[in-house]
Amino acid sequence: MGLGLFHRHRGATPYLLLAPGMLWLAAFFLVPLGFLAYQSLESGSIIAGFGYAFTWAWSNYSSAVRGYTGEFERSFEYAGLATVIALVVSYPVAYWIAFRGGRWKNLLLLFIVAPFFVTYLIRTLAWQTILSDHGLVVRLLTDIHLISPGGRVLATGTAVVAGITYNFLPFMALPLYVSLEQIDQTLIEAAEDLYASKWRAFLRVTFPLSLPGVVAGTLLTFIPAAGDFINAQLLGSPTSHMIGNVIQSKFLGLQDYPAAAAMSFILMAIILALVLVYARVVGTEKLTG
């Protein structure tokens, strides 16, 4: 009986199934986005009594770029570095779990996800202790002369990149694991049968077949990392602030909504452009496997 509706409107079924998600997106993503766009073109000041007015103030955009070029650059530099490091660190881990994990696979995956049981803020605060001036890491790095005596790690760009890498590592490792796990082991045997050494077989067969995971992992890491502000705030200093810090302080501290909204749009546009270029370079089919 209940299914009668679906049978009578067979063509409408997909739309009915999509409707809840679409409504959700419209209400909680598109509408706020439109509001943000509207806000980014307002002008006025806090001194004038919170009276922002819509005036097609495109100057919000130009002054955002002019005033905060460094923060923008740093955002993409840190996010890019963290993405590359996360890829290099998690690829062998994901590879090992997928191919050698055996019956320990699920437990090992749990270890990767385990930090997520603690909130983002606490996890990042823990890194303050780890990287603190009298902490173990600094002592170790001083001992092996990687930093000079009295040098610091905390409140530097290195600490920010380390924090971002750590916080987004699971977003890299899990897609990598999934794509590696799906690779038919016989294909690697076939490559070795056809005179490819283990390394050649990896380069010619395993790695190309894991590319969907690499693409998914890098996007899932890079996109949120570029807009992150927690790591720079807790582990960095004003000289290592990212654009996320500026947006956060304008929105919540200075209540300069138009400038913050304009910066958000610029950030979004640059990320979108980078993703499109990336997808073009590696091939869009890799995104869907």
């Binding site: 016989t186 049968d193 067969v205 077949l209």
Partner: peptide, 20 residues
Amino acid sequence: LPPYKRDVNTVFQSYALFPH
């Protein structure tokens, strides 16, 4: 010797053609 050093080739049951 590892497989790649043997003058032998295999036709696998699942064919194992490289999909990419």
